[in-house]
Nucleic acid binder design. Structure first.
Length: 446
RNA sequence: GACCCUAUCGUCCAGUGGCCUAGGACAUCGCCCUUUCACGGCGAGAACACGGGUUCGAAUCCCGUUAGGGUCACCA
C-alpha cells in the first residue's frame, strides 16, 4: 500500500445491524488493522424518515460488542467530521455546485438535482471480483429505455446516497471502498461521479452477500440475521467474529478457529470468495461452544458475569471461577449458565421431577446415608479421594458405582444432569455436601 | 427487460492443468470413552450444475445453456 490505508463502514441507521453489515465492517476493520490504517465509522442518515435512534444504538452496540473499534466517527471524533451525513449538508452543497458549474448536473422539471450520466464504457479492478468491464451505453431501465440520470438531491432538498457517499469518501480520504456486492453494479456510476468531480477513484472491493441457509435473502426476521441476537443469545463475541470471517473468507488451510490477531495477520482480499455464502447457524453455534470451552478463564468469567448478575447469582471471582470451570465444557450459550450453576448458590435449590423420581427409588436414601457416613471424615476432600471412596463403598455393597452416583448427584444438585460428580462435590465442600444429603433425606423420607 | 457477479459434499471452505480413486469443518449416522449431560476419539455416507471445446491430460482454461444472487429509485 503506497498511501496510508483509510477505510470506512457506512451503515444507515434504518433497522438493525445485520450480520452481512457486521462482516463488511469486520473486513474493513481487519484490513485497516493489518495495514496500520484508519477505520472510519460514518452514519449515512440522509433519509430522515427512515432513521431511528434504536437503529443507531444497535450499530454502536453491535460494533463495540464485536470489538470493532473505530478510529474516527461518532464518539471517536476525527479530522473529517462530522461523521453523520445529516450534518454535512454544506459540504454536499459545495460539491453539487461544482457539478452544476461544470454542466455535469442540472435541475429537472420536478425540481430534483440530477447528475448527467456520461454512459461511457468503463473498467475497473475490484479487489475481490477482479477486472470488470462494463459498457455503460448498453444499460437500460426496466422498461427498456436508457438508464435515467442519477438523482443527487431530492426536490425537497434531501441528498441521495450515491452522491453523498462518493463526496464523503473523497472528503474523508477513503483509499479502499470495501462494501457489499449489492453495490458492484452501482460502482460504475460512482466512478463516473469521481471523474466528474476530477478525483481519482479509490480501490473497490465487493464482498458477496450472506444468504439464508436455503439461499433466500436474509431479512430481519431470519434467525441469526441481527447482531443483537448474538448479544442476547449468550454468544462469545470472538466466536461470532470468527464465524462471520470464515463466511466468505478463507485462510486457505484448514484452520477453523482463528483469533482476531490471526485474522489480522492472515487476512487478504485474495482469500475473499466471490460466491454468496449461505448462513449456517449450527456451525456458528459449534464455534461458540468451542470458544466457551477454551477461552482463558478470566475472559470466560468476564463474559459470564452479566448473565449471572441477571439471574441474581453473585460472588467474588474466587468463588465463581471454580464453579464456572466445572460446567463450562457443557455450556453452549452463556444464557444457560444460571441453570447449570444455580444450585451452587442457594441451599433452597429445587428438586426437578426426574431428580425426585431418582430419590424416591427404593434404597436411594440408604445409599445417601452410607455415603454420608463414608464422607464424614474422609481426608483429603478432593475429587480423586471422593471417587475412590465411593467406588470402594459400591464394591463393599456389591453394587455398581451408579447406585451411589445418581442419588448423590440428585441430592446435592436437585438435578439428574450436571458436572462431574466428584469435582462437583469437591467444589461444594464437605459441609455443604453433608447438609445437602441431609436435606434430601428429610425431603424424601417416608 | 438490460447490465453485473457467481456455480466443488445439505452448509462453509480447500483445490488455480497432472500430487484428485477431490481434502478439512459443521450437520447426519455408527462405534468407543463415560456416574448423568457434555467433551473427546475412531469410522461411514455425502459434491466438481449441464453441454461443447482447448490439451497428451481439466474440478481447474474458453464458449454456450441452465440455475442462483445483485443493480437499474426523489432507499441506503
Amino acid at each position: 500500500m503506497s498511501s496510508k490505508v483509510r477505510v470506512r463502514f457506512a451503515p444507515s441507521p434504518t433497522g438493525y445491524l445485520h450480520v452481512g453489515g457486521a462482516r463488511t465492517a469486520l473486513f474493513n476493520w481487519v484490513f485497516a488493522r493489518k495495514h496500520g490504517g484508519t477505520f472510519v465509522l460514518r452514519i449515512e442518515d440522509t433519509d430522515i424518515a427512515r432513521n431511528t435512534d434504536e437503529a443507531m444504538q444497535a450499530i454502536f452496540d453491535g460494533m463495540r460488542w464485536l470489538g470493532l473499534d473505530w478510529d474516527e466517527g461518532p464518539h471517536a471524533g476525527g479530522q473529517c467530521g462530522p461523521y453523520f451525513q445529516s450534518q454535512r449538508g454544506a459540504i454536499y452543497e459545495r460539491y453539487a455546485q461544482k457539478l452544476v458549474e461544470g454542466g455535469k448536473a442540472y435541475t429537472d422539471e420536478a425540481g430534483a438535482l440530477r447528475f448527467r450520466l456520461p454512459r461511457q464504457p468503463l473498467a475497473f479492478d475490484d479487489l475481490v471480483c477482479g477486472h470488470i468491464e462494463i459498457d455503460r451505453s448498453k444499460s437500460q431501465s426496466r422498461d427498456g429505455s436508457p438508464e435515467a440520470d442519477m438523482t443527487i438531491r431530492r426536490a425537497d432538498g434531501g441528498w441521495i446516497f450515491h452522491f453523498v457517499n462518493v463526496v464523503d469518501d473523497i472528503e474523508m480520504g477513503i483509499t479502499h471502498v470495501v462494501r457489499g456486492e449489492d453495490h458492484l453494479s452501482n460502482t460504475p456510476k460512482h466512478i463516473e461521479l469521481y471523474q466528474a468531480l476530477g478525483v481519482e477513484p479509490p480501490q473497490f472491493g465487493h464482498i458477496p452477500l450472506i444468504l439464508n441457509k436455503d439461499g433466500s435473502k436474509m431479512s430481519k426476521r431470519d434467525q441469526g440475521a441481527a447482531v443483537g441476537s448474538y448479544i442476547e443469545g449468550g454468544y462469545a463475541p470472538e466466536a461470532v467474529v470468527n464465524y462471520i470471517a470464515l463466511l466468505g473468507w478463507s485462510p486457505k488451510d484448514d484452520s477453523e478457529k482463528l483469533s482476531v490477531d490471526e485474522l489480522i495477520a492472515r487476512f487478504d482480499f485474495s482469500g475473499v470468495n466471490r460466491k454468496g455464502a449461505h448462513f449456517d447457524l449450527e456451525k456458528c453455534n459449534w464455534l461458540n461452544a468451542q470458544y466457551l470451552m477454551h477461552l482463558p478463564m478470566d475472559r470466560y468469567l468476564a463474559l459470564a458475569l452479566p448473565w449471572l448478575e441477571k439471574a441474581g447469582i453473585t460472588g467474588d471471582d474466587a468463588t465463581l471461577t471454580p464453579v464456572l470451570a466445572l460446567v463450562r465444557e457443557k455450556v453452549k450459550f452463556l444464557t444457560e449458565l444460571p441453570d447449570w450453576i444455580g444450585f451452587f448458590f442457594t441451599e433452597e435449590y429445587p428438586f426437578l421431577p426426574d431428580a425426585e423420581e431418582k430419590l424416591r427409588k427404593p434404597g436411594a436414601l440408604d445409599r445417601i446415608a452410607q455415603l454420608a457416613e463414608a464422607y464424614r471424615a474422609i481426608e483429603p476432600w478432593d475429587s480423586a479421594t471422593l471417587e475412590v471412596k465411593l467406588k470402594e463403598l459400591a464394591a463393599t455393597h456389591g453394587v455398581k458405582a451408579a447406585e451411589f452416583v445418581h442419588p448423590a448427584r440428585t441430592a446435592v444438585s436437585g438435578k439428574t444432569v450436571g458436572p462431574s460428580l466428584y469435582h462437583m462435590l469437591e467444589v461444594l465442600g464437605r459441609e455443604r455436601v453433608l447438609k445437602r444429603f441431609a436435606r434430601a433425606t428429610q425431603t424424601f423420607a417416608g
